[in-house]
Design a protein around this nucleic acid. Structure first.
Lengths: 212, 212
DNA sequence: TCTTAGACTTACGGGCGTTAGCTTATGTCC
DNA sequence: GGACATAAGCTAACGCCCGTAAGTCTAAGA
Protein backbone atom coordinates (compact mmCIF):
# COMPACT_ATOMS: atom_id res chain seq x y z
CA UNK A 1 0.00 0.00 0.00
CA UNK A 2 1.62 3.18 -1.15
CA UNK A 3 0.13 6.31 0.36
CA UNK A 4 1.12 9.23 -1.76
CA UNK A 5 0.81 12.50 0.07
CA UNK A 6 -0.71 15.25 -1.99
CA UNK A 7 -1.19 18.16 0.33
CA UNK A 8 -2.93 20.56 -2.02
CA UNK A 9 -3.45 23.25 0.57
CA UNK A 10 0.05 24.43 1.45
CA UNK A 11 -0.92 25.01 5.09
CA UNK A 12 -1.27 28.44 6.57
CA UNK A 13 1.40 29.63 8.87
CA UNK A 14 0.27 29.97 12.47
CA UNK A 15 -0.37 33.41 13.87
CA UNK A 16 2.13 35.07 16.12
CA UNK A 17 2.16 33.54 19.57
CA UNK A 18 0.50 30.42 18.26
CA UNK A 19 3.62 28.72 17.02
CA UNK A 20 3.13 26.09 19.69
CA UNK A 21 0.14 24.80 17.80
CA UNK A 22 2.48 23.15 15.36
CA UNK A 23 3.78 21.00 18.15
CA UNK A 24 0.39 19.37 18.55
CA UNK A 25 0.02 19.02 14.80
CA UNK A 26 3.33 17.21 14.63
CA UNK A 27 2.25 14.76 17.32
CA UNK A 28 -1.06 14.25 15.57
CA UNK A 29 0.73 13.60 12.30
CA UNK A 30 2.90 10.96 13.94
CA UNK A 31 -0.16 9.28 15.41
CA UNK A 32 -1.86 9.40 12.02
CA UNK A 33 1.09 7.61 10.47
CA UNK A 34 0.82 4.92 13.10
CA UNK A 35 -2.91 4.57 12.57
CA UNK A 36 -2.35 4.00 8.89
CA UNK A 37 -0.94 0.67 9.91
CA UNK A 38 2.71 1.24 9.33
CA UNK A 39 5.03 0.18 12.06
CA UNK A 40 7.25 2.60 13.94
CA UNK A 41 9.78 2.60 11.16
CA UNK A 42 7.24 4.51 9.10
CA UNK A 43 7.35 7.33 11.61
CA UNK A 44 10.47 9.19 10.58
CA UNK A 45 11.19 12.82 11.10
CA UNK A 46 10.67 13.45 7.44
CA UNK A 47 7.51 11.41 7.06
CA UNK A 48 5.99 13.20 10.02
CA UNK A 49 6.88 16.51 8.43
CA UNK A 50 5.29 15.48 5.14
CA UNK A 51 2.16 14.35 6.95
CA UNK A 52 1.97 17.62 8.84
CA UNK A 53 2.51 19.57 5.65
CA UNK A 54 5.67 21.28 6.79
CA UNK A 55 9.34 21.15 5.94
CA UNK A 56 11.38 18.61 7.86
CA UNK A 57 13.69 21.07 9.63
CA UNK A 58 10.69 22.96 10.97
CA UNK A 59 10.25 20.18 13.47
CA UNK A 60 13.42 21.16 15.29
CA UNK A 61 11.73 24.22 16.67
CA UNK A 62 9.54 21.91 18.74
CA UNK A 63 11.41 18.66 19.23
CA UNK A 64 15.05 17.98 19.89
CA UNK A 65 15.10 14.85 17.74
CA UNK A 66 12.96 12.07 16.32
CA UNK A 67 12.78 9.94 19.50
CA UNK A 68 11.41 12.85 21.46
CA UNK A 69 8.52 13.01 19.00
CA UNK A 70 7.81 9.42 19.91
CA UNK A 71 7.99 10.22 23.59
CA UNK A 72 5.45 12.98 23.08
CA UNK A 73 3.20 10.56 21.20
CA UNK A 74 3.39 8.08 24.05
CA UNK A 75 2.67 10.80 26.59
CA UNK A 76 -0.38 11.94 24.63
CA UNK A 77 -1.74 8.44 24.20
CA UNK A 78 -1.11 7.53 27.81
CA UNK A 79 -3.21 10.49 28.81
CA UNK A 80 -5.87 9.44 26.32
CA UNK A 81 -5.86 5.92 27.72
CA UNK A 82 -6.15 7.23 31.25
CA UNK A 83 -9.10 9.40 30.27
CA UNK A 84 -10.76 6.47 28.53
CA UNK A 85 -10.39 4.23 31.54
CA UNK A 86 -11.64 6.89 33.91
CA UNK A 87 -14.65 7.55 31.74
CA UNK A 88 -15.43 3.85 31.50
CA UNK A 89 -15.27 3.51 35.26
CA UNK A 90 -17.46 6.53 35.84
CA UNK A 91 -20.08 5.48 33.33
CA UNK A 92 -20.37 1.95 34.67
CA UNK A 93 -22.88 0.73 37.19
CA UNK A 94 -21.74 1.86 40.60
CA UNK A 95 -20.96 -1.59 41.98
CA UNK A 96 -17.32 -2.54 42.16
CA UNK A 97 -17.56 -5.61 39.96
CA UNK A 98 -19.15 -3.69 37.10
CA UNK A 99 -16.58 -0.95 37.38
CA UNK A 100 -13.72 -3.45 37.38
CA UNK A 101 -14.96 -5.06 34.21
CA UNK A 102 -15.69 -1.74 32.59
CA UNK A 103 -12.20 -0.43 33.20
CA UNK A 104 -10.47 -3.66 32.17
CA UNK A 105 -12.53 -4.01 29.02
CA UNK A 106 -11.92 -0.38 28.13
CA UNK A 107 -8.22 -1.14 28.39
CA UNK A 108 -8.54 -4.13 26.08
CA UNK A 109 -10.68 -2.17 23.65
CA UNK A 110 -8.12 0.60 23.45
CA UNK A 111 -5.47 -1.85 22.33
CA UNK A 112 -7.78 -3.38 19.75
CA UNK A 113 -8.91 -0.02 18.45
CA UNK A 114 -5.44 1.48 18.23
CA UNK A 115 -3.04 -1.43 17.88
CA UNK A 116 -0.11 0.56 16.59
CA UNK A 117 -0.45 3.16 19.29
CA UNK A 118 -0.56 0.44 21.91
CA UNK A 119 2.55 -1.16 20.51
CA UNK A 120 4.43 2.11 20.65
CA UNK A 121 3.26 2.78 24.18
CA UNK A 122 4.25 -0.59 25.60
CA UNK A 123 6.41 -2.18 22.95
CA UNK A 124 9.56 -0.60 24.22
CA UNK A 125 10.95 -0.10 20.76
CA UNK A 126 12.23 3.35 21.49
CA UNK A 127 13.71 2.59 24.87
CA UNK A 128 16.93 0.85 23.91
CA UNK A 129 18.15 3.67 21.75
CA UNK A 130 17.69 6.13 24.55
CA UNK A 131 21.42 6.46 25.07
CA UNK A 132 21.93 8.52 21.96
CA UNK A 133 18.84 10.64 22.30
CA UNK A 134 17.50 13.45 24.36
CA UNK A 135 15.20 11.12 26.31
CA UNK A 136 16.12 10.45 29.90
CA UNK A 137 15.18 7.60 32.21
CA UNK A 138 13.12 10.05 34.21
CA UNK A 139 10.99 10.61 31.13
CA UNK A 140 10.17 6.93 30.96
CA UNK A 141 9.41 6.19 34.60
CA UNK A 142 5.95 6.99 35.82
CA UNK A 143 4.59 7.04 32.29
CA UNK A 144 1.61 4.77 32.85
CA UNK A 145 1.36 5.45 36.56
CA UNK A 146 -1.90 7.33 36.46
CA UNK A 147 -3.72 4.74 34.38
CA UNK A 148 -2.38 2.00 36.61
CA UNK A 149 -3.67 3.87 39.63
CA UNK A 150 -7.18 3.57 38.26
CA UNK A 151 -6.76 -0.18 38.09
CA UNK A 152 -5.57 -0.31 41.67
CA UNK A 153 -8.62 1.67 42.73
CA UNK A 154 -11.23 -0.51 41.07
CA UNK A 155 -9.53 -3.68 42.24
CA UNK A 156 -9.28 -2.31 45.75
CA UNK A 157 -12.99 -1.50 45.68
CA UNK A 158 -13.74 -5.11 44.81
CA UNK A 159 -11.77 -6.31 47.80
CA UNK A 160 -13.47 -3.83 50.08
CA UNK A 161 -16.91 -4.84 48.87
CA UNK A 162 -15.95 -8.43 49.56
CA UNK A 163 -16.47 -9.71 46.06
CA UNK A 164 -12.79 -10.50 45.53
CA UNK A 165 -10.38 -12.56 47.61
CA UNK A 166 -7.82 -9.86 48.25
CA UNK A 167 -4.39 -10.75 49.48
CA UNK A 168 -2.48 -8.47 51.78
CA UNK A 169 -0.78 -6.94 48.76
CA UNK A 170 -3.23 -4.93 46.69
CA UNK A 171 -0.48 -3.38 44.59
CA UNK A 172 0.98 -6.77 43.71
CA UNK A 173 -2.46 -8.10 42.83
CA UNK A 174 -3.05 -5.13 40.57
CA UNK A 175 0.29 -5.68 38.85
CA UNK A 176 -0.64 -9.29 38.17
CA UNK A 177 -4.02 -8.25 36.83
CA UNK A 178 -2.45 -5.64 34.61
CA UNK A 179 0.12 -8.11 33.29
CA UNK A 180 -2.67 -10.41 32.23
CA UNK A 181 -4.55 -7.61 30.54
CA UNK A 182 -1.37 -6.46 28.89
CA UNK A 183 -0.64 -9.92 27.57
CA UNK A 184 -3.98 -10.06 25.84
CA UNK A 185 -3.97 -6.45 24.75
CA UNK A 186 -0.51 -6.72 23.27
CA UNK A 187 -1.31 -9.91 21.47
CA UNK A 188 -4.43 -8.38 20.00
CA UNK A 189 -2.44 -5.38 18.91
CA UNK A 190 0.19 -7.50 17.24
CA UNK A 191 -1.62 -10.36 15.62
CA UNK A 192 -4.25 -10.32 12.93
CA UNK A 193 -6.49 -12.92 14.53
CA UNK A 194 -6.15 -14.10 18.09
CA UNK A 195 -6.87 -17.77 18.60
CA UNK A 196 -8.69 -18.83 21.70
CA UNK A 197 -12.15 -18.32 23.15
CA UNK A 198 -13.96 -15.02 22.75
CA UNK A 199 -14.39 -14.56 26.47
CA UNK A 200 -10.72 -14.98 27.27
CA UNK A 201 -10.65 -11.40 28.50
CA UNK A 202 -13.33 -12.04 31.08
CA UNK A 203 -11.60 -15.21 32.13
CA UNK A 204 -8.37 -13.36 32.72
CA UNK A 205 -10.08 -10.67 34.75
CA UNK A 206 -12.00 -13.13 36.89
CA UNK A 207 -8.98 -15.27 37.60
CA UNK A 208 -6.53 -12.47 38.28
CA UNK A 209 -8.90 -10.34 40.32
CA UNK A 210 -9.74 -13.46 42.34
CA UNK A 211 -13.43 -12.79 41.99
CA UNK A 212 -15.62 -14.98 44.12
CA UNK B 1 28.01 2.54 22.53
CA UNK B 2 29.74 2.23 19.19
CA UNK B 3 30.74 -1.29 18.30
CA UNK B 4 33.31 -1.12 15.59
CA UNK B 5 33.67 -4.37 13.76
CA UNK B 6 37.26 -5.32 13.15
CA UNK B 7 37.13 -8.76 11.66
CA UNK B 8 40.83 -9.46 11.47
CA UNK B 9 40.37 -12.95 10.13
CA UNK B 10 38.80 -12.41 6.70
CA UNK B 11 36.73 -15.61 7.02
CA UNK B 12 37.49 -18.73 5.07
CA UNK B 13 35.23 -19.60 2.23
CA UNK B 14 33.13 -22.71 2.83
CA UNK B 15 34.05 -25.88 1.05
CA UNK B 16 32.10 -27.06 -1.96
CA UNK B 17 28.71 -28.39 -1.05
CA UNK B 18 28.88 -26.62 2.29
CA UNK B 19 27.68 -23.27 1.09
CA UNK B 20 24.54 -23.78 3.11
CA UNK B 21 26.57 -23.32 6.27
CA UNK B 22 26.57 -19.61 5.60
CA UNK B 23 22.84 -19.57 6.05
CA UNK B 24 23.20 -20.58 9.66
CA UNK B 25 26.01 -18.11 10.18
CA UNK B 26 23.80 -15.33 8.85
CA UNK B 27 21.03 -16.21 11.26
CA UNK B 28 23.53 -16.43 14.10
CA UNK B 29 24.90 -13.02 13.17
CA UNK B 30 21.42 -11.52 13.25
CA UNK B 31 20.78 -13.03 16.67
CA UNK B 32 24.13 -11.74 17.87
CA UNK B 33 23.16 -8.23 16.81
CA UNK B 34 19.94 -8.56 18.79
CA UNK B 35 21.77 -9.85 21.84
CA UNK B 36 24.02 -6.82 21.79
CA UNK B 37 20.98 -4.91 22.90
CA UNK B 38 20.17 -3.00 19.79
CA UNK B 39 16.58 -3.04 18.72
CA UNK B 40 15.41 -4.55 15.47
CA UNK B 41 16.44 -1.49 13.54
CA UNK B 42 20.02 -2.51 14.22
CA UNK B 43 19.46 -5.72 12.30
CA UNK B 44 19.80 -4.55 8.73
CA UNK B 45 20.89 -6.63 5.82
CA UNK B 46 24.20 -4.83 5.76
CA UNK B 47 24.84 -4.98 9.49
CA UNK B 48 24.14 -8.69 9.47
CA UNK B 49 26.60 -9.11 6.63
CA UNK B 50 29.24 -7.14 8.51
CA UNK B 51 28.67 -9.22 11.61
CA UNK B 52 28.95 -12.42 9.62
CA UNK B 53 32.09 -11.18 7.95
CA UNK B 54 30.71 -11.34 4.43
CA UNK B 55 29.72 -8.90 1.73
CA UNK B 56 26.12 -7.73 1.84
CA UNK B 57 25.03 -9.18 -1.52
CA UNK B 58 26.24 -12.62 -0.46
CA UNK B 59 23.16 -12.88 1.69
CA UNK B 60 20.92 -13.08 -1.35
CA UNK B 61 22.13 -16.56 -2.08
CA UNK B 62 20.35 -17.68 1.09
CA UNK B 63 17.56 -15.22 1.78
CA UNK B 64 15.17 -13.48 -0.53
CA UNK B 65 15.22 -10.23 1.44
CA UNK B 66 15.83 -8.75 4.86
CA UNK B 67 12.48 -9.70 6.42
CA UNK B 68 13.03 -13.33 5.58
CA UNK B 69 16.18 -13.23 7.66
CA UNK B 70 14.04 -12.11 10.56
CA UNK B 71 11.58 -14.89 9.89
CA UNK B 72 14.42 -17.40 10.02
CA UNK B 73 15.59 -15.90 13.29
CA UNK B 74 12.13 -16.24 14.78
CA UNK B 75 11.89 -19.82 13.56
CA UNK B 76 15.22 -20.69 15.12
CA UNK B 77 14.39 -19.07 18.42
CA UNK B 78 10.93 -20.60 18.55
CA UNK B 79 12.55 -23.98 18.21
CA UNK B 80 15.05 -23.07 20.89
CA UNK B 81 12.25 -21.98 23.19
CA UNK B 82 10.36 -25.19 22.55
CA UNK B 83 13.43 -27.25 23.37
CA UNK B 84 14.02 -25.26 26.54
CA UNK B 85 10.45 -25.76 27.72
CA UNK B 86 10.52 -29.44 26.92
CA UNK B 87 13.78 -29.89 28.77
CA UNK B 88 12.46 -28.01 31.78
CA UNK B 89 9.38 -30.19 31.87
CA UNK B 90 11.37 -33.39 31.54
CA UNK B 91 13.87 -32.44 34.23
CA UNK B 92 11.22 -31.43 36.76
CA UNK B 93 9.78 -33.65 39.44
CA UNK B 94 7.28 -35.95 37.84
CA UNK B 95 4.19 -34.51 39.49
CA UNK B 96 2.03 -32.25 37.37
CA UNK B 97 2.29 -29.20 39.57
CA UNK B 98 6.07 -29.21 39.52
CA UNK B 99 6.12 -29.68 35.77
CA UNK B 100 3.68 -26.83 35.25
CA UNK B 101 5.80 -24.44 37.25
CA UNK B 102 8.98 -25.66 35.63
CA UNK B 103 7.68 -25.06 32.13
CA UNK B 104 6.13 -21.70 32.94
CA UNK B 105 9.21 -20.45 34.73
CA UNK B 106 11.41 -21.63 31.90
CA UNK B 107 9.27 -19.53 29.59
CA UNK B 108 9.67 -16.48 31.78
CA UNK B 109 13.39 -17.08 32.13
CA UNK B 110 13.82 -17.26 28.39
CA UNK B 111 12.33 -13.81 27.98
CA UNK B 112 14.49 -12.40 30.73
CA UNK B 113 17.63 -14.03 29.39
CA UNK B 114 17.06 -13.02 25.79
CA UNK B 115 14.85 -9.96 25.87
CA UNK B 116 15.56 -8.79 22.34
CA UNK B 117 14.95 -12.21 20.90
CA UNK B 118 11.67 -12.42 22.77
CA UNK B 119 10.62 -9.04 21.46
CA UNK B 120 11.32 -10.08 17.91
CA UNK B 121 9.47 -13.35 18.35
CA UNK B 122 6.33 -11.85 19.81
CA UNK B 123 6.64 -8.14 19.22
CA UNK B 124 5.08 -8.32 15.81
CA UNK B 125 7.32 -5.62 14.42
CA UNK B 126 7.96 -7.41 11.20
CA UNK B 127 4.39 -8.48 10.53
CA UNK B 128 2.85 -5.27 9.23
CA UNK B 129 5.37 -4.89 6.45
CA UNK B 130 4.63 -8.36 5.21
CA UNK B 131 2.81 -7.06 2.18
CA UNK B 132 5.95 -5.98 0.41
CA UNK B 133 8.07 -8.94 1.38
CA UNK B 134 8.49 -12.57 0.57
CA UNK B 135 6.86 -13.61 3.84
CA UNK B 136 3.41 -15.12 3.60
CA UNK B 137 0.67 -15.46 6.17
CA UNK B 138 1.23 -19.19 6.15
CA UNK B 139 4.75 -18.56 7.38
CA UNK B 140 3.41 -16.72 10.38
CA UNK B 141 0.64 -19.05 11.45
CA UNK B 142 1.57 -22.03 13.57
CA UNK B 143 4.86 -20.42 14.54
CA UNK B 144 4.63 -20.99 18.27
CA UNK B 145 2.25 -23.90 18.03
CA UNK B 146 4.65 -26.55 19.26
CA UNK B 147 5.71 -24.62 22.34
CA UNK B 148 2.11 -23.83 23.12
CA UNK B 149 1.30 -27.51 22.87
CA UNK B 150 3.68 -28.18 25.72
CA UNK B 151 1.79 -25.71 27.86
CA UNK B 152 -1.50 -27.39 27.03
CA UNK B 153 -0.01 -30.71 28.05
CA UNK B 154 1.28 -29.68 31.45
CA UNK B 155 -1.91 -27.80 32.23
CA UNK B 156 -3.99 -30.75 31.15
CA UNK B 157 -1.95 -33.01 33.42
CA UNK B 158 -2.76 -30.73 36.35
CA UNK B 159 -6.46 -31.03 35.64
CA UNK B 160 -6.22 -34.78 35.30
CA UNK B 161 -4.36 -35.12 38.56
CA UNK B 162 -7.05 -33.04 40.18
CA UNK B 163 -4.81 -30.28 41.43
CA UNK B 164 -6.38 -27.66 39.16
CA UNK B 165 -10.01 -26.65 38.66
CA UNK B 166 -10.22 -27.35 34.97
CA UNK B 167 -13.06 -25.94 32.96
CA UNK B 168 -14.50 -27.80 30.01
CA UNK B 169 -12.19 -25.86 27.73
CA UNK B 170 -8.58 -26.86 28.26
CA UNK B 171 -7.40 -25.00 25.18
CA UNK B 172 -9.03 -21.80 26.30
CA UNK B 173 -7.56 -22.14 29.76
CA UNK B 174 -4.13 -22.65 28.27
CA UNK B 175 -4.53 -19.57 26.11
CA UNK B 176 -5.41 -17.52 29.17
CA UNK B 177 -2.44 -18.92 31.06
CA UNK B 178 -0.13 -18.18 28.16
CA UNK B 179 -1.46 -14.63 27.83
CA UNK B 180 -0.60 -14.01 31.46
CA UNK B 181 2.87 -15.43 31.04
CA UNK B 182 3.32 -13.43 27.88
CA UNK B 183 2.30 -10.22 29.59
CA UNK B 184 4.96 -10.67 32.22
CA UNK B 185 7.57 -12.02 29.84
CA UNK B 186 7.08 -9.18 27.40
CA UNK B 187 7.20 -6.57 30.09
CA UNK B 188 10.41 -8.05 31.46
CA UNK B 189 11.86 -8.05 27.97
CA UNK B 190 10.95 -4.44 27.37
CA UNK B 191 11.55 -2.64 30.60
CA UNK B 192 14.70 -2.19 32.61
CA UNK B 193 13.18 -2.88 35.98
CA UNK B 194 9.75 -4.39 36.48
CA UNK B 195 7.88 -2.98 39.43
CA UNK B 196 5.77 -5.30 41.50
CA UNK B 197 6.41 -8.24 43.81
CA UNK B 198 9.12 -10.75 43.00
CA UNK B 199 6.71 -13.67 43.04
CA UNK B 200 4.34 -12.14 40.54
CA UNK B 201 5.15 -14.95 38.14
CA UNK B 202 4.03 -17.60 40.59
CA UNK B 203 0.91 -15.62 41.36
CA UNK B 204 0.00 -15.46 37.69
CA UNK B 205 0.54 -19.16 37.23
CA UNK B 206 -1.48 -20.11 40.29
CA UNK B 207 -4.37 -17.85 39.41
CA UNK B 208 -4.55 -18.68 35.71
CA UNK B 209 -4.03 -22.42 36.10
CA UNK B 210 -6.74 -22.37 38.78
CA UNK B 211 -4.56 -24.35 41.13
CA UNK B 212 -6.32 -25.57 44.21
C1' DT C 1 7.36 50.86 8.79
C1' DC C 2 9.97 47.73 11.01
C1' DT C 3 10.77 43.53 14.06
C1' DT C 4 10.69 39.14 14.55
C1' DA C 5 8.11 34.72 15.09
C1' DG C 6 7.27 31.11 12.14
C1' DA C 7 8.35 29.05 9.01
C1' DC C 8 11.14 27.53 4.25
C1' DT C 9 15.15 26.12 0.83
C1' DT C 10 19.23 24.06 0.00
C1' DA C 11 22.68 21.01 0.91
C1' DC C 12 25.79 17.55 3.20
C1' DG C 13 27.10 13.01 4.46
C1' DG C 14 25.70 8.52 5.45
C1' DG C 15 23.17 4.12 5.63
C1' DC C 16 20.06 1.33 3.37
C1' DG C 17 18.35 -2.58 -0.08
C1' DT C 18 19.35 -4.39 -4.32
C1' DT C 19 21.35 -5.39 -9.18
C1' DA C 20 25.07 -6.65 -12.35
C1' DG C 21 29.06 -8.55 -13.23
C1' DC C 22 33.56 -10.40 -11.66
C1' DT C 23 36.97 -13.32 -8.99
C1' DT C 24 38.83 -17.30 -6.80
C1' DA C 25 39.09 -21.42 -4.48
C1' DT C 26 37.68 -26.33 -4.76
C1' DG C 27 37.00 -30.65 -6.39
C1' DT C 28 36.92 -33.66 -10.65
C1' DC C 29 38.55 -35.89 -14.58
C1' DC C 30 41.93 -37.03 -18.01
C1' DG D 1 49.66 -33.39 -11.89
C1' DG D 2 47.56 -30.06 -14.70
C1' DA D 3 43.22 -28.22 -17.12
C1' DC D 4 38.74 -27.01 -16.29
C1' DA D 5 33.99 -26.40 -14.55
C1' DT D 6 31.53 -24.33 -11.06
C1' DA D 7 30.23 -23.26 -6.31
C1' DA D 8 31.04 -19.56 -3.18
C1' DG D 9 31.51 -15.15 -2.46
C1' DC D 10 33.35 -10.38 -3.82
C1' DT D 11 33.48 -5.37 -5.82
C1' DA D 12 31.23 -1.58 -7.68
C1' DA D 13 27.49 1.02 -8.31
C1' DC D 14 22.48 2.54 -8.51
C1' DG D 15 18.86 5.29 -6.37
C1' DC D 16 16.47 6.25 -2.29
C1' DC D 17 15.55 8.03 2.23
C1' DC D 18 17.27 9.54 6.35
C1' DG D 19 18.78 13.17 10.16
C1' DT D 20 20.53 17.52 10.57
C1' DA D 21 23.12 22.22 9.77
C1' DA D 22 23.16 26.84 7.71
C1' DG D 23 21.16 30.42 5.92
C1' DT D 24 16.84 32.82 4.02
C1' DC D 25 12.27 34.46 3.38
C1' DT D 26 7.71 36.48 4.80
C1' DA D 27 3.70 37.66 6.92
C1' DA D 28 1.79 39.15 11.42
C1' DG D 29 1.41 42.59 14.62
C1' DA D 30 3.21 46.72 17.21
Amino acid sequence: MVTLVTNTEPRRRNRRGEGGKLRDEIIAAAVALLDEGGDERAVTLRSVARKAGIAAPSIYAHFADQPSIMLAVVRREMDALTATLREAGDNAEPDARARLFAVCNAYLDFAELHPQRYRIMFGGLWTPSVEDTSITDADLDSLGAEAFGLLVDVLGACVEEGIAHGSDDLFGDAVALWLGLHGLAHQRAVVRKMPGPADVGDRLIKALAHLK
